[in-house]
Amino acid sequence: MIEVKNITKKFGNKKILKGLSFTAKKGEITCLIGINGAGKTTALNAIMNLTPLTSGEILIDGKKLTKESYQTIAFIPDTIAMLSQMTIRQAMHFMKDFYTTWNQERANELLNFFQLTETQKIATLSKGNTAKINLMLGLALDVDYLLMDEPFSGIDIFSREQITSVFTSHLIEDRGVLITTHEISDIEHLIDKVILIDDGIVVKDFNAEDMREQEEKSILDVMREVYVK
């Protein structure tokens, strides 16, 4: 379980996170929702120690993040974290070199699924294909937790469909997924937990299925309630 406990973060004089707390469990898909600037990306970056916190604590399976944690928790940022002069093969080789949890078979499987070949240079890929490779680099790691920052942002509908289908596959089950996105329509039916963020704090935190069954509200309904005042 990823536990985010009351984290605050200031950028200069501006407070982005003002005491954010939530958890993301293994085996669940947790979705952070909020308008631009609410602090979603910052929260994810903070979990991965890609940016320091002003206060608060983040625990992964009860422990603080160490360098070894990167073998159990992977982050797929909104832009591809690989050199564009590399070919896909070189990128995979790089991952294999450093991560013991790199699963080459799974990577190949994904490449096939996305219909991409490893000799292509990342720089030559379209936006959609780049996003797919970005995803592949994260998914091919045998990690317990997967963090994704806006995986659908700016992607064409067909690529989106492809990516969405990955979410239902064996590639995702058993893992804890923490995802931020605007476009919940693609994966609304897959999300287990929703965390609504506004102005640096959690304003609502609920289980999607429970909300649907008990209050007969979709996630979008709740969002409208919360954000549109």
Binding site: N49, L50, S69, P77, A81, M82, F98, Y99, I122
Partner: peptide, 11 residues
């Protein structure tokens, strides 16, 4: 491509 993400996340 902010490669620094990758470098900072190396185990």
């Amino acid at each position: 491509n902010a490669f620094i993400y990758r470098l900072l996340m190396l185990p």
